[in-house]
Design a protein around this nucleic acid. Structure first.
Lengths: 134, 134
DNA sequence: CCGTATCCTCCTCGATACTG
DNA sequence: CAGTATCGAGGAGGATACGG
């Protein structure tokens, strides 16, 4: 195991950094938030309890698979609760937990910057693309 | 074109929602931030100007492809500037723009929530998984 | 030194069909 | 009503090699 090749060194660095990133709290939160449907669901539930089919209608365009999958993840993360009423037919209600509610201001902060500055970003893109086409 | 099938209705709803999401400022910002390397680069540049190879070393584990691609996107978005010094060999410096700097507090806010509550999330996951294994 | 070009592999997501 | 199961297409991202 004499000397390390450049590839070996990069491979090891990658391992270290992957581990670092996996433990980074901000990264974990971003991974959750960046899911297309998470913020939409969080918003839909910000007004209080809602049924599955109600959510499906409110967030039209989401597939059953994604809605269920996302709700399960949020439940697992302790951000929403799932309450089954064993009537016929079944009824399932979802609601934000205290932890879920505490996340709303963060989303609002993101929304705040975005609404204030996204136009600058768009303008920058326009200039960049125009310059590229030269 | 008589009646619409359920699939048709869903397809149309999807179009409407995709368009809605494409225009949502928060979504756009999240799409940018959620990139694995963006926040790392933003952080690396928070101290001031840095060279390409310097960044590559600081963020070890990133491939050339991803580093260049990400830097290009950030430049296009007006968040960083790219300054080429045509010496031999070439030297390229990257630096945050005012817009890029204005984004740092948002990242800090995310970091704040994450550090305060990610442990609750982990605990919730532990409980959820334990309950599932019943 | 700072990239670009190519290939190739996961892995996410949507569509569809079926169940308690 | 509220899911689960299965399949297939598409894109993101890494490895590698080459160019100005």
């Amino acid at each position: 195991m004499a000397t390390m090749s450049a590839a070996d060194r990069r491979a090891q660095a990658k391992l270290v950094y992957d581990a670092y990133i996996d433990e980074c709290p901000s990264r974990k939160l971003l991974d959750t938030l960046s899911d297309k449907w998470v913020t939409l669901i969080l918003n839909a539930l910000s007004g209080g309890q809602r049924r599955y089919s109600d959510l499906a209608r409110a967030i039209a365009g989401v597939s059953q698979k994604m809605l269920t999958q996302t709700l399960r993840r949020l439940e697992r993360d302790g951000l929403v609760t799932r309450a089954v009423t064993p009537s016929v037919p079944v009824r399932v209600d979802y609601e934000l937990t205290a932890l879920g509610v505490s996340l709303l201001p963060v989303v609002a902060a993101i929304k705040g910057w975005a609404e204030a500055h996204i136009e600058d970003v768009e303008d920058a893109r326009g200039r960049y693309d125009a310059a590229s086409r030269t």
